[in-house]
Amino acid sequence: MGKVVCELCPRRCAIPEGGAGDCRVRVNLDGRLRATTYGHPSAVHVDPMEKKPLYHFRPGARVLSIGTAGCNLHCRHCQNWQLSQRGGEEMEVLYEAPPEAVVALAEVQGCRAIAYTYNDPIVFYEYVLDTAEQARARGLANVLVTAGYVNREPLRRLCAVVDAVNTDLKGFDERFYRDVCGASLKPVLDALVTFREEGVWQEVTHLVIPTVNDDLTMIRRMARWHHDHLGADTPLHLSRFQPMYRLRNLPPTPSEVLVRAREEALDVGLHHVYIGNLFGHEAESTHCPRDGTLLIRRSGFRVLENHLTEDGRCPVCRERIAGVWS
C-alpha cells in the first residue's frame, strides 16, 4: 500500500500507510484515508450564540456545540489544546454521536443551531458535512468556528450547508502564522473571501496577544484588508488574550490596548468592532453605524436589550443593520 495525499487543507499531507496527517485524526489505513473522529466528538455543550462569538446572527439563540480531537493548526496560545493537539486514540472522552443523534440532541435541548467548534471543524469535515445536511433538513442552522486553513474546493462544498461562520484571523503576517500557529496566512485570507463569495454570514475574530500580534500598525493594515475584501459591515471581534498553553508567560491583554486597536479598526471604516473577553465593556454592544443608537446591549454572553426592529433595522433612523436577525 502506498501513501495517500490529503487534499483537504493547504498542508497536503502525504501520509504513509499506518500514519496520520498533521492533524492527527485523518489516518491512512489500508491505503485509504480515514476520518477517525467521525461520529465521535469529545466535547458537547450548549452555548449561547454570543459565545462563538456571533453577534449579528440569531442573537441569544442556544447552540449545541461539538468538537473532536485533532487540529490542522498548532497555535501556541490554543485555548483547547487538550482536544486539539491530540489524536482520537489519545482521548479519555469519546462520545458516540452519529449525525442523527447530534441533530436529535440539539432539538431536545431547544437549540436553534449546531456549532462545529472547539478544535477546528475542518479536521472533522465529513462529520460536519453529514450533520449539517441533516440539521438543515430539520430547520436548524449550522455554524462554523474555524481558523479557515482549508483548500478552496472543499470549503466551497461545505459552504453549501453552513449558515454562519466566525473565522479567526490570528495575525496579519506570514511570520506570525508560521512561528505561532505552524501555518500560513494566505490560505486563511482566501477562505475569508470564499465565505463572503458563498454568501455565508461571517464575523471575524482577532485575538490580541501582548507583544506577539498587538502592533497597532499591523492591526490597522488588517482592518484595512478586512474593509476592502469583506466589507465594512462584517463584524470584527478583538478578543482579549488569557495566558494559555505555551504562551503562559505572557500577561492578559491590557484593556487600553484593546481600546486602541478598536479605534484603529473603526478609523479605517469598519462599522461593527467589538471587544471580547472583557466582560462589561461598552464595546460588547451593537450600535447603529449611522446615528449611534444603542441596538443590542450585551454583558458577557448575555443579551440584555434588543431594540432592533423585526426586519433588522435601527428603530430611530431605519438604517438596515447587517446580520441574520430572525
Partner: peptide
C-alpha cells in the same frame, strides 16, 4: 466502536 474507520473525502492515493 469508540472511533471510526469512515473513509474520508478529498484525498488521492499516490502511485506506488
Amino acid at each position: 466502536g469508540e472511533l471510526s474507520a469512515r473513509e474520508a473525502l478529498w484525498y488521492h492515493a499516490e502511485p506506488a
